[in-house]
Write a protein that binds this DNA or RNA. Sequence first.
DNA 1: TTTCTGCTTGTAAACGTTTTCATAAGTTCT
DNA 2: AGAACTTATGAAAACGTTTACAAGCAGAAA
Lengths: 338, 338
Amino acid sequence: MTKLTDVAKAAGVSIATVSRVLNNPGSVNADTQQKVQQAIRSLNYKPSRVAQRLRSKGGNSKIIGLVLPDIQNPFYVDVIRGVEEAMYEKGYAAIMCNFAQNEDKERLYLDILQSESIDGLIVAPVHGRDQKVANMVLSGLPIICIDRGLTGVEADVVLVDNQQGAFDAISHLIKLGHQRIAYISGLPQIPTSKARLAGYEAAFKEHGLPVDETLIKYGDSKHESGMRLTAELLDLPTPPTALFTGNNLITLGALETIHSRGVKIPEEIALVGFDDMYWSISLNPPLTAVRQPGFEMGQRAAELLFQRIKDPARPTVKVVFDATLQVRSSCGAAAKNS
Amino acid sequence: MTKLTDVAKAAGVSIATVSRVLNNPGSVNADTQQKVQQAIRSLNYKPSRVAQRLRSKGGNSKIIGLVLPDIQNPFYVDVIRGVEEAMYEKGYAAIMCNFAQNEDKERLYLDILQSESIDGLIVAPVHGRDQKVANMVLSGLPIICIDRGLTGVEADVVLVDNQQGAFDAISHLIKLGHQRIAYISGLPQIPTSKARLAGYEAAFKEHGLPVDETLIKYGDSKHESGMRLTAELLDLPTPPTALFTGNNLITLGALETIHSRGVKIPEEIALVGFDDMYWSISLNPPLTAVRQPGFEMGQRAAELLFQRIKDPARPTVKVVFDATLQVRSSCGAAAKNS
DNA sequence: TTTCTGCTTGTAAACGTTTTCATAAGTTCT
DNA sequence: AGAACTTATGAAAACGTTTACAAGCAGAAA
């Protein structure tokens, strides 16, 4: 790798001058600048980000961390794409860490990121009282929480109105005449799970209906638990007439179990999922789902992070996107839009 | 951040000794070691990976690059998970770069990775003659190609027998009586697209049937092109009776177009896709697809990379996984397995 | 006692940058 | 012509590690 001294030698100047041409071009004579630029080009010099990062702590090493719970969940893939697009435009790189809903793994990755001296972090904390993340916020590292907030510490956060999304979904089912509506939750300690449960309960209350606790199941936010818990629900003496699934992967697991038993959707059981996917329409049947704008959320998180890196003192903000119900045929009310 | 000097001061030794405790514990006296370990723990010292990387070039900075064409494609998500699991076990971190089939973006990311002094790289090159990647291989950086090989340069590669997979898929359709079988290819310059086309043609040849060029369409490996090209095929005076889609996203696009026109699968058109997804069974109808073991491929690539980092002189290997046809009902021969 | 050997430990250089400080060479002003 | 600025550049320190080398000190061999 060519380095600063090589360029300096080729241009007949000192390394300080070369560095200045790179970082503060105004401060160097036009002729010298020419020579240096020339040398840089002809040697194809690229500064070492590692050395840059070691030397100048804070905010200009152009690398950030992105720590997410489950890369297999298409929602987070959208988030990644959103973040990544914004990063790319600014020449930033992201160290991507998928902690698979595992707190130990999250901690390890956060340690690594810290010791990589990242400029900032976008993270969906493993749960609301994530001490490690809270400490990092307190230590002054620019951090944006996405999808899940943090209790007890001031931090920027980008999320969706989960309660309202669930409320809309359940209300829709109730209006279609359903009363026995089951809910398969993701990991109960995750803030989104709680908010969605709250929306579920609020919808029942709003319509003067009682909540049947036996119809609420708690899983681990993954495909397998969707399969297993759906089976448990179908095995009840009086199975539910409708099912609300707490995320993407649970929905797909539920579909698999329902199909394997030959149960008809929506005739025998209606289905509404949290998290829409661009191919939800190609499922059997086309899935009614609550849509979170993952891509936009990712972009927004990245922008907020850039802001905070530039101005660490800016007051924290909370960006709440709407969750919108996409009605398709899996809950009976076939609609013709996508 | 606490640093080596802090620990050294606390333990009453020099920084060199602390460093030795960390990297070469055998070489230091047991008592001293105790003291140092103690100090490290009580100060919660974590070495700066940046400084480590700057100082000791090559092979022990525990960070690698992972450069993939399209994170929206679930196959690559499986690859990521496989790589990531293997990395995690060894305390490595990965800088994830999604170049979205865009050569400029790939180049930018490769530049960044180089200037981050990564230990190694796992990459699915944008095409077979990717000069940038080839140069990096030549420069001695440990590199494993995944999913796509590199022509003209010796490099480790992990992929699937794409030709055989396509051959099996088409043979299956031919045996079911289809003759007008369309193929929607991904980007034609990608090696996998070529291999799959070769398998398609080989199957026709094997069965003594002619290839109808008008039934072969080339897209960009994304959802939208699947939609558009399927529409073109359905608009033909004599539409195909079967469709073979060149990847995941094309398949989903094809499904969307087919459903939007109310065309029946498999009665009016049979469908076989390249790339299986764990939720293929929940599609409408359950999708017959060629399965690539993405997770295993990712794991294997990571292992090969570790090997190469340890022993840069090891001869290059080519690992070829089987592509297996998962028969479900989208091509007519309903089968009861998953 | 002297010399040698082996074991521990410390000193200092190096990795490739950025940045402070000093300096040299012009300018401008009196 | 000398003082006071301004502008352009270089020398050197610093970032936090690893590691080559030197050195101290014990015990063993002579």
